[in-house]
Design a binder for these strands. Structure first.
Length: 301
DNA sequence: CGGCTTTGACCGGCGC
DNA sequence: GCGCCGGTCAAAGCCG
């Protein structure tokens, strides 16, 4: 398989997971520390405390960044309804907040107290909005592990980070990303395995509702292939896929030499517990003679 | 100035 | 009911 081949891994199109993708990923992994200078004083103090206590340490760069091995699973389906509902609730909430603000303005709140009141109202309204909701439905998930120096692997789509949490029993934080394309429900979680810090665990959730921006930019044969433009439907009996990474010297940063994606049947419909996959390493410069191997792993919830 | 990251707070789900 | 934990929100600030 060629590196420019497109792989549909359970509804998410993966392509060119190599040179182009990686070239825009920040090489600076010390993000937290670097950005601390921009924090407001109290936040900075807290951040420093966390770092000292070990919660946010560990964004160090592993020495190796070559072969990547991946496996995947999918979780329960169901999405459009909940997404629509979510939007409705948000809109309703926004209106109510605006109303509350107007109300405040009318009654002439003063200084900090008024602001505090506003905050409380906002929180209450948010609470109220959420209470209306039914049990949140999880979208199909697809997880894979990649041996990589960089936490956030470029996959051709544009992502916005919306959260980061310390992972229990792990020095490495988990980052939450959302696809920046309007109305695209896809999210992904990125975390580093604490057992093997050179391994990045990426979990995708949902299906892109649009063409991969990288495809658009590339504008070549990719667009000629309809399969690259239409998100596919999840298959319950998943097929084995693999995506090849090329390692090139033109990359500005170290890139994975090879990445293999697998979809495997999982016993649990809602959570990946343990999957196994065999990989066929790529004939790359970094690992020209790499042997066939089998990987067993468990993805933490 | 728009897009993005950071980060504390909050919420719901779940186990006990 | 309570506490823990994962996931999300949103304000604040940075960056190009």
């Amino acid at each position: 398989m060629h590196s420019s081949d497109v792989v549909d891994y359970g509804g998410i199109l993966a392509k060119d997971f190599d040179v182009k993708c990686c070239s825009s990923v920040p090489s600076d992994l010390g993000l937290v520390g670097d950005r601390k200078k921009g924090l407001k004083p109290e936040s900075r103090i807290k951040a420093e405390k966390r770092i000292r206590s070990g919660c946010l340490v560990g964004r160090t760069t592993p020495a190796t960044a070559n072969s990547s091995v991946s496996s995947s699973s999918m979780e329960g389906a169901g999405e459009e309804e909940s997404a629509k509902y979510c939007k409705d609730v948000k809109e309703e909430l926004r209106e109510e907040v605006e109303e509350a603000k107007r109300d405040d303005a009318q009654h002439g709140g003063e200084g900090g107290e008024a602001k505090q009141d506003d905050d409380d109202k906002h929180k209450k309204l948010r609470n109220k909005a959420k209470k209306k909701g039914e049990k949140r439905q999880r979208e199909p998930r697809f997880a894979f592990m990649t041996k990589s120096e960089v936490d956030h692997l470029e996959d051709g789509y544009r992502w916005r980070k919306y959260g980061q949490k310390a992972v229990k029993n792990s020095p490495y934080p988990r980052s939450y990303y959302r696809c920046t394309t309007q109305r695209c429900p896809v999210k992904k979680r990125v975390e580093r395995s604490y057992q093997d810090p050179s391994v990045v665990i990426t979990t995708y959730e949902g299906q892109h509702t649009h063409v991969c921006p990288a495809n658009v930019r590339a504008g070549s044969h990719m667009l000629a292939d309809p399969s690259t433009m239409v998100p596919s439907i999840m298959h319950s009996d998943m097929l084995l896929h693999q995506l090849v990474h090329n390692n090139t010297t033109t990359s500005r940063r170290p890139t994975p030499a090879a990445a293999l994606f697998f979809t495997t049947s999982c016993s649990s419909p809602t959570r990946m517990t343990s999957c196994s996959a065999s990989s066929h390493p790529l004939p790359t410069e970094a690992s020209p003679n790499a042997a066939k191997r089998t990987l067993h792993f468990t993805v933490p919830k």
